[in-house]
């Protein structure tokens, strides 16, 4: 057997926020990938929903490729989830979910997305609806999959804030200022 497939993971941090591409996991199937994504990407707050999609089912294009006249390969029409990277600012995530649209094929979906969401995005990802596996949106799932992470304060650096303050005060006194 070759390695298990790679699944891209999209995490929603809270109600009213959009899903963002956070990384990937190796897993056997979609449900396994979803549970794995929860273990890997939601072990700290905050999350309320996860989506996964097999990496090789996603259509991706960078601005540079687009400018060079590259297009997307052929594929079925249907509903596409559009993700885009907007800035070069330092970030933990590749891009945001911009919206969803219907198109007769991936290339048409990309054209429609460029019209709708602007032409200056740095990276485009198009995920066919059929490729997405989603966590349940029920309150019970949110409570059991995601909410308990908030109580695990021991893995948050803010729990250790007081420690070493005397040492950094000492450092300032010695150096006459913070070197950062």
């Amino acid at each position: 057997m070759s390695e298990l497939p790679r699944w891209e993971v999209f995490k929603q941090d809270g109600p009213g926020k959009v899903h963002q591409a956070v990384g990937s996991v190796h897993a056997g199937d979609g449900q396994h990938a979803l549970f794995t994504a929860r273990s890997v990407f939601a072990r700290r707050p905050a999350a309320v929903s996860l989506w996964v999609a097999r990496a090789d089912h996603i259509f991706a294009l960078t601005k540079q490729e687009l400018d060079a006249g590259k297009g997307l390969s052929e594929g079925n029409g249907g509903t596409f989830y559009i993700f885009g990277k907007k800035t070069n600012r330092r970030s933990m995530t590749l891009g945001d979910h911009l919206g969803t649209l219907e198109a007769s094929n991936p290339q048409a979906a990309l054209e429609a997305a460029r019209t709708q969401y602007g032409d200056d995005l740095l990276v485009w990802w198009l995920v066919p609806d059929s490729a997405l596996v989603r966590s349940t949106d029920s309150a019970e799932t949110v409570e059991s999959w995601f909410a308990p992470a908030k109580d695990k304060t021991y893995k948050q650096q803010s729990s250790y804030g007081v420690v070493g303050q005397h040492a950094s005060a000492h450092k300032k006194a010695v150096r006459g200022g913070d070197h950062d």
């Binding site: 298990l4 996991v25 190796h26 897993a27 549970f35 794995t36 273990s39 890997v40 072990r43």
Partner: peptide, 10 residues
């Protein structure tokens, strides 16, 4: 699987 190291630690 590396992912399962993480899952079991949870």
């Amino acid at each position: 699987l590396l992912e399962e190291d993480i899952a079991l630690a949870n």
